[in-house]
Design a protein around this nucleic acid. Structure first.
Lengths: 203, 203
DNA sequence: GTCTATACGCCGATAGAC
DNA sequence: GTCTATCGGCGTATAGAC
């Protein structure tokens, strides 16, 4: 954890600005509609060439973004699994996190939910095969073994549960649901959880 | 309904081939990864220039596709609403249609469910504002008035219901669920319907 | 290590011969 | 009405001066 003392941006700070700007633009207008010129401008960098001090291609910017987002998500999920035991509590933690991200960092959630990652990151593993999402599937499997969740195909349970969650968040992100995500959180959680829970354990 | 007698393709047949080829390529690799050269090749047209006999831009090909798909969907939904009365029956008809399309015409469903339409058709109305989808919302509103569907925000009911349906279909389209969509149809319908139905009317 | 200039390729679109 | 040739532009990427 070094301290930066000079007023000019450190190399890593500038790199971060590029990533932040790129994330914002990609989420707003799509990867292919965003040029390096756009990114340089949004990152307060004077020339496109300067970007190449930090990344060797536009593609590698998107790659780094993807890695960062998934790493961070991974850490958060580990944390949730460490702090709580029951599957219901862990899923609840994940849902709370996703709703919070939707309100606080919509660009990250757009990257995860609505962008066609395979179109510009074809070599990356699809989301569902990343370790963060495999861990979520494991939570569901554990819930089935523990009798908390109905005994159905875990992949289907996962599909239904996050169908509700993700579609709600997507509608918020696209403005088709107009209030903040957090507004819909309690009832959406209930709808999704009761759908897969063994007995209607709530209310 | 004219008959085409010559062996060479009529103008409209060729136009249709272009649309079919474009739909396939857009769905497979995305709009921006598909060039007019690709489309000409896939449509068995010798030169890119020939495409301009039918369309005045790449963009207009995508536009025509979007219109055709939504028109056809619209007709099907009118048909469903004409043949059945109860909201449950009408929704069931829509669900059956979507599952059938997923197995029989996956490119169409990819166009509707997974492609980022706003990135390459920014001037088009978002899906949820098209008349086909407004009609679906009306079915849900009618169901609430008739006491078939729980008395919640129709937009939320719609979000939950099609969250389950669409996510299941998306997982099939991307291969994350490996069997044909029709395999999952009965239980997915039940899950989605019971979620919004007033009383657990099934089983 | 930051900018200028520029190379290079690709693609959408057009002109015009036949 | 179909092909050849080509334009024009954009966007990524690089070379090289300072």
């Amino acid at each position: 954890m070094e301290q930066e003392l000079n007023t000019t941006q450190s190399k890593s700070e500038q790199q971060n600005e590029i990533l932040v700007a790129a994330l914002k633009l990609f989420a707003e207008q799509g990867y292919f509609n965003t040029s390096l010129t756009d990114i340089a401008e949004a990152a307060d960098i004077k020339t496109v060439s300067a970007i190449y001090q930090h990344f060797n291609s536009k593609h590698s910017i998107a790659n780094k973004l993807y890695d960062n987002i998934l790493d961070s998500l991974n850490v958060s999920i580990d944390d949730i699994r460490r702090r709580t035991q029951k599957s219901s509590e862990q899923l609840r933690g994940v849902v709370d996190l996703l709703f919070k991200l939707t309100d606080d960092a919509p660009a990250i959630m757009k990257f995860l939910l609505v962008m066609p990652l395979n179109e510009f990151l074809p070599e990356q593993k699809p989301l569902q095969q990343t370790s963060a999402f495999i861990k979520i599937l494991k939570i569901i499997q554990a819930g089935i073994r523990a009798g908390e969740i109905r005994n159905i195909d875990p992949m289907l349970a996962n599909t239904y549960f996050f169908g509700i969650i993700n579609n709600t968040l997507t509608m918020v992100l696209t403005g088709e649901l107009s209030k903040p995500a957090d507004t819909y959180r309690p009832q959406t959680w209930l709808a999704a959880w009761n759908l897969i829970a063994k007995k209607s354990s709530v209310f």
